[in-house]
Every structure is written in structure tokens, then in C-alpha cells.
């Protein structure tokens, strides 16, 4: 009996071993190493393993890196808010208005993810560039005399592009939550005199609040960490983000420890953002539970009437 148990243990180890070893070598060790590296320094373009806090004090004292972090946080917050704001009507529409080919409508959102990160960023540039589609169209029609400069290489372009990149990630959890909201609940609210907007705000939104937080978190992390769209459609350097600074320190200016320190700060920021929603939902839960209890009899009433 003990032999079989040991045999089964061995089975698990054989199946799991390679993946665990890979994870150790390429997830755990690199992360630890990057954090260690953030406490080292460069001398004559060589990495010197002398422990120090210089990189973090550079971050705290200098204005550039702070602004980089703030820019990334702002981009993330704006993209998250917009992605959720766009996902809501879309999810509501698919859940309550689409009767046939629902999968097609959902699929069309997810497929947007498949079209390629680079291409979706590039597409905005073709669309919004000074000689791009929109500007030349507007001038051709005669609405504007010269190209609208805010369209590209601007904060506007960054947020728009990041919203588009992040939207499917916000949509998926929001739609999944809405799928569990019964139309009869909204009907009941309507029968009690609540207009559409009131139904939406007072019944639908509270029921999917946790999913809104999850969707916003996904969108936030994606936009916060993005350094490609920012450098590609954003202004040359004015709104550089911490992600760009990590990339620059590693691959352009060859200051690996500084890059590692900024990367570590990014990891901490993301960990914080990931734990905040968990805290928030814990605080929300009592209200949510009370609602669900109150909602349950409504469903049965609706069933009895029908």
C-alpha cells in the first residue's frame, strides 16, 4: 500500500517536474535576480555586485522617474475607466438585446484581441497621422484647413490606443457577470416603475460591481505596463512612462540596475493594484449579499406570474 502511494507520488513528480523546473529557472530565479540587480550598480558599463540603494534614491529624488510612474498610473486609470465605460453598454446590449447569434457578437469582441498588438497600434497612426486618413479626409471635405495635431503623438492618442488594446480584457469579466443577471430582475424593477436608466443603475450595476472591478484591473495593468503604444503614438518624451524608462535603461542607456529598480517598482505597483480590488470586494460583500437575498424572492414572484 505504501509502495503504491509512493508510486503515485512519483507519478505526480514526473508529470509536474519539468514544468516546475522550468518555472523555477525562468520565473522564480529571474524575478529574484531582477530584484537583486536593482540593489547593484554599473561601473564602466559593467555590472558590479555592490549592494546599495542608489537606484531607489535616484527614483525618489529625481523628477523624471516619478513623473514616469505618475504618467503610467494616469494612463492606466484613464484606459481602465474608458474600457469599462465602453464594455458596459456593449455587454448590456449583447446580454439583453441580442436574441440570435449571441456567440457571434461576443466572438467579435474577443477576435479584436487576435488582430495583433503591433497592428492595432500602427492602425491608429495610419488613421490619425498628419497625412493620415482622418486628417486628409477632414481637409478634403473642408471641415479643417490643416491637420489636427492633437490626434497623434499626444496623450489623447495614447489613451485611445490603450483603451482599444485593453477593452476586450475588461469586456470578458463584465459580460460573464452580466450573463448571470436574470432579465426578470430588470423586468420586476420596470414593473415597479423604474425607468431603464434607473434599472441599469440601481439593479444591474450593483449586481455586477465585482466584475467591473476585475475588468478595470485587467485594463489598468495592461495600460499601466504598456511601453510600446506610448512610444509609438505618444509624444516624443514629454509623457514617457515608467515602462518606457525600464525599456530604455535596459536596452538603450545600459543602466540595468536602474531599469531593474524601476521594474521592481512596477511589480510592487501591480501587486498593490491586484490586492486593492480584493480588499474592496471584501468591504462590499455585505451589501452584495443583502441585495442578493432581497433579489431572490423577486425571481420566484416573476416565475409565479408567468
Amino acid at each position: 500500500m505504501s509502495l503504491i502511494r509512493r508510486h503515485r507520488w512519483l507519478q505526480g513528480a514526473i508529470l509536474l517536474g519539468p514544468a516546475a523546473a522550468w518555472a523555477l529557472a525562468f520565473i522564480v530565479v529571474p524575478t529574484v535576480l531582477a530584484v537583486c540587480m536593482s540593489f547593484w550598480k554599473m561601473r564602466d558599463f559593467r555590472l558590479v555586485k555592490e549592494w546599495n540603494l542608489d537606484n531607489y534614491s535616484t527614483f525618489l529624488e529625481g523628477d523624471i522617474y516619478w513623473r514616469g510612474l505618475l504618467n503610467a498610473l494616469q494612463n492606466g486609470a484613464m484606459a481602465a475607466a474608458l474600457a469599462v465605460a465602453l464594455s458596459l453598454p456593449l455587454a448590456h446590449f449583447i446580454r439583453f438585446r441580442v436574441r440570435r447569434h449571441k456567440t457571434l457578437f461576443i466572438g467579435a469582441v474577443v477576435v479584436a484581441l487576435w488582430l495583433g498588438y503591433l497592428l492595432r497600434v500602427f492602425g491608429w497612426r495610419v488613421l490619425f497621422g498628419a497625412n493620415g486618413v482622418l486628417n486628409t479626409f477632414l481637409m478634403d471635405v473642408g471641415i479643417t484647413q490643416e491637420p489636427l495635431s492633437f490626434l497623434i503623438f499626444s496623450r489623447f492618442a495614447i489613451v485611445l490606443t490603450q483603451t482599444q488594446l485593453a477593452m476586450p480584457f475588461a469586456f470578458i469579466p463584465i459580460y460573464a457577470a452580466l450573463e448571470r443577471v436574470q432579465p426578470s430582475l430588470l423586468q420586476a424593477a420596470g414593473d415597479l416603475g423604474a425607468r431603464r436608466w434607473r434599472q441599469f443603475v440601481s439593479v444591474e450595476l450593483p449586481l455586477i460591481a465585482p466584475a467591473l472591478v476585475i475588468g478595470a484591473t485587467f485594463a489598468f495593468i495592461l495600460a499601466f505596463g504598456d511601453y510600446f503604444a506610448t512610444s509609438f503614438v505618444g509624444p516624443p518624451s514629454a509623457t514617457q512612462t515608467i515602462g518606457n524608462q525600464v525599456a530604455d535603461n535596459f536596452r538603450a542607456t545600459i543602466n540595468w540596475p536602474m531599469g531593474a529598480a524601476l521594474g521592481t517598482i512596477m511589480m510592487l505597483a501591480i501587486l498593490l493594484v491586484l490586492t486593492l480590488p480584493a480588499l474592496a470586494t471584501r468591504l462590499w460583500r455585505p451589501a452584495g449579499r443583502r441585495r442578493r437575498d432581497a433579489a431572490a424572492p423577486d425571481t420566484t414572484d416573476e416565475g409565479a406570474l408567468a
Partner: peptide, 20 residues
């Protein structure tokens, strides 16, 4: 932990592996 490299921004995952 296994999902982390896919979920974290590419800049974090790329930086860690480059450090290695």
C-alpha cells in the same frame, strides 16, 4: 505563479528574463 508571466505586463516579464 505559472500564469504570472502571461498576466504581468511584458516589460516586467521581459526585464526579469533579461536579468537572468
Amino acid at each position: 505563479m505559472l500564469m504570472a508571466p502571461f498576466l504581468v505586463p511584458g516589460v516586467v516579464s521581459g526585464m526579469a528574463l533579461l536579468s537572468l
